[in-house]
């Protein structure tokens, strides 16, 4: 029996971003942004921040995602000392990119758009890279790419799987071509994981667009998405502007992608832990050249008697 099935996910929320959507409410009630239903905050947190009425999956800070997944005290953060630089000397009007990054960091309470590290799920070690929309729309710049690449390399060293949980507005435009090429860098890093036959699990969360969807996040071995998450390359506003057509209801949702054969599965937040535990075990077993046989003595004796070798 997997320990994981008996374990109630422990989730202690931490402080979130300050844009209201991400913030863990201080009040007694939260109002669903989709169906306006009120939920009692305690119930809401116990439900992993999924609306009990319409199933809307709230956007959550990276650190809350990690808290939902990790065994107690099992998370060790990696590379938290990396900070945004300003390779282009970029500014719009009075505000430099450097200033914007610093003020965003203090508002969002995190130094960059990615939190990475090592955690355990029911004792199974896992490298994780989780993005946080509160930091400049979780856009992919140099720090994002470097953290992901290092996490990938550490997963190879430790021979453990990699989980990426991605929401993103796309490239960090303020870093110009440096940001576009993070798509190449991160995807290239994944080839080493692949050569080591270590799995990359990718969970796409709302919203996931642009360079992230078009790179590491969708070349995973198992691509999952949260229900209702909007996922695509070009954003709906851009498409509507160019085509001057209204997009159909449900366009670019996780369910739309599933129907069009673009992702492997849609996983509700409450099922994620169990799904990951099963996947980790499955691919760990697959790495063994032959399965360990649990009830084989009689069978083995029979094979030997027939002069066939079944040992491996």
């Amino acid at each position: 029996m997997r320990e994981i099935f008996r374990r109630q996910p422990k989730f202690r929320p931490t402080s979130g971003g300050d844009d209201g959507r991400l913030q863990v409410p201080d009040d007694l009630w939260v109002k669903c942004p989709k169906c306006q239903e009120l939920s009692y905050t305690k119930e809401h947190l116990r439900a992993l921040r999924v609306c009990h009425r319409c199933g809307y999956h709230y956007r959550i800070p990276a650190i809350d995602r990690i808290a939902m997944l990790a065994d107690e005290d099992s998370f060790t953060e990696w590379d938290n000392e990396l900070r945004t630089a300003d390779p282009l000397g970029f500014r719009v009007g009075d505000e430099s990119y450097q200033d914007k990054a610093v003020s965003t960091a203090s508002k969002a309470g995190i130094p960059e758009a990615v939190v990475s590290g090592l955690l355990a799920i029911g004792g199974r070690p896992l490298a994780v890279v989780v993005t946080d929309f509160a930091f400049m729309g979780a856009s992919m710049g140099s720090v994002y790419g470097e953290k992901l690449t290092r996490a990938c390399e550490r997963a190879v060293e430790r021979e453990i799987p990699l989980l990426t949980v991605s929401c993103s507005g796309g490239a960090r435009m303020q870093e110009g071509l440096f940001s576009l090429l993070q798509m190449a860098k991160t995807t290239t890093a994944l080839t080493r994981l692949g050569h080591a036959r270590l799995p990359h699990f990718s969970l796409l969360t709302d919203p996931c667009y642009g360079g992230v969807t078009a790179s590491y996040a969708t070349v995973a071995d198992v691509v999952m998405a949260e229900p209702g998450a909007r996922i695509g390359f070009a954003g709906p506003r851009v498409i509507e502007q160019v085509t001057r057509q209204k997009l159909p209801e449900g366009f670019q949702t996780a369910e739309f992608l599933l129907e069009h054969g673009l992702i492997d599965t849609v996983v509700p937040r409450g099922d994620l832990l169990t799904t990951l535990a099963i996947l980790i075990d499955f691919y760990q077993n697959a790495r063994n050249p032959r399965p360990a046989r649990e009830t084989a003595p009689a069978e083995l004796a029979h094979s030997t008697a027939n002069g066939t070798s079944d040992a491996g």
Binding site: A184, T213, T218, V219, Q245
Partner: peptide, 24 residues
């Protein structure tokens, strides 16, 4: 990239990602 809805339905992001991955 082509900004049409059909390209989204046909997995433009995944197609680009696959090419980057292959070229790597």
């Amino acid at each position: 990239a082509d900004p049409g809805p059909t390209s989204e339905e046909h997995g433009q992001a995944m197609a680009i990602a696959d090419n980057i991955h292959a070229l790597a």
